[in-house]
Design a protein around this nucleic acid. Structure first.
Lengths: 243, 243
DNA sequence: CCATGCTATCTTGCATGCAAGTAAGAATTT
DNA sequence: AAATTCTTACTTGCATGCAAGATAGCATGG
């Protein structure tokens, strides 16, 4: 059983092992974001078993906010609360990834469609950001900087949902996007160079520019579907469980 | 300001005003479901201002589970927690309805596509349920029983997402569907008879039966889009704020 | 040596207590 | 009478206390 001390530092410096606190609205939000980031960045890897009181200590707060944050994280599908036993960071199975992609495909498709139906003066700045991000992808790929490529790619997709104006969609997509992040980072250097991505992005941008909502939706969905089709066999073949 | 006593009963029987408790996993879930149902059924109408302690009393539990349930309900967009002031049941604006429909359209489209890609032996029973629900809609409509029609319609859509096998999608769609429920019930007798719905449902069923995922997705999306296009002008025209 | 039962400990679930912030209304002043 | 200040009651946010369940390890009996 993996315990916190083995991962966050030796016992002797236990008093110092604190994950960075995020100042925000309340302690619950603070805990939620901090834990989430810890999971996203793999500081809390899948299988990591934590106790509320331990995380609370690391965050410098009582169990209550951590308890509430964990409930939210379980809702998000990131952790599993085993009653009277503890909290375990969940791994993502291949089936999970497929489900997550399916939802992402649906939501991003809707976001692309919505942006396409904006008036031109509202579409213009969005298109500019999307284009910049895609160009950054191209240059990063040309320079062999996969990490920069991934970052630019994420910015493209984040922009797509962040700019669509539908808050519920944004929240849902955001929640789900974090879960993909880990899987994508893990397989980043394992998969073939994603050279087609830029073109697919440009296809999405082009449809948005022309105001063709249905085409933009389809292009966005096709793009994510391709990514999913590339990622899934990799995970299955390598029998990657720790995502 | 609307207070609980005015809505849930006179003061003299305060000790008896309890909203039905749902036995389940824990008190948090119990509170969540009970409050959610109270909102859904308009027992807690929009604008209703509640205090944690009051609801806790009605549910026969302490503030803590109610507090956590309320946090979830705020996440769901059903209530707003005003710090140090109270909890207010939110109304749905026309823009909210539009956003909700947009997400529903995306998710149900994905669900329909997924079901279409099932092997035939798995598709068969789903199709049967969908067909039954649609037939029930037809007979209800013929008999002028709008309430039965709405129930059958909801069953159709619930089945679509419940059977798709993607839990994340199910949860998201479920959360959002509840928010539509109120609006649909309010406008049920105000809108023209939804005679086209059955045919659109049959179109969805047909595509699923043929295993045409993309067609099923499109049919499902078009159907919900039509419903949205019918509902929104009504809400705007009647200046309905209390949804 | 192995199996079985017991105990000590660790876990969450929830109730309660306390602090801090808000608003409404009473009391006071102009 | 009107405006202003102060008090008081009520709200959530969070810490803490306590109970109940689960587990691991030890002791005990075979």
């Amino acid at each position: 059983m993996i315990r916190s001390n083995e991962l966050l530092g030796p016992v002797s410096v236990d008093q110092d092992t604190q994950i960075s606190e995020v100042s925000g609205a309340g302690r619950v939000t603070s805990a939620y974001q901090a834990i989430r980031e810890a999971i996203r960045s793999n500081l809390f890897p899948p299988g990591y078993q934590a106790a509320e009181v331990e995380i609370a200590r690391q965050l410098g707060m009582s169990r209550t906010p951590v308890h509430e944050a964990m409930a939210r994280l379980q809702e998000d599908g990131l952790v599993r609360i085993l009653p009277k036993k503890g909290i375990i960071i969940l791994a993502l199975s291949a089936a999970d990834i497929e489900d997550i992609y399916e939802v992402t495909i649906a939501l991003e498709g809707a976001a692309a469609a919505r942006i396409s139906s904006f008036p031109i003066e509202q579409r213009e700045p969005v298109i500019e950001i999307l284009r910049q991000a895609t160009l950054a992808m191209k240059t990063a790929l040309a320079g062999g900087d996969l990490k920069a490529w991934a970052q630019a790619d994420e910015q493209f997709h984040e922009t797509l949902v962040a700019m669509c104006g539908n808050r519920r969609l944004m929240r849902m997509a955001g929640t789900i996007a974090d879960q993909l992040h880990r899987a994508r980072m893990f397989t980043l250097n394992l998969r073939p160079l994603p050279s087609a991505s830029s073109d697919e992005h440009f296809a999405i941008i082009s449809s948005i520019e022309k105001g063709e909502a249905e085409a933009a939706s389809r292009a966005a969905r096709r793009h994510r579907q391709h990514a999913c089709d590339q990622l899934l066999p990799l995970i299955a073949r390598l029998n990657l469980r720790n995502l």
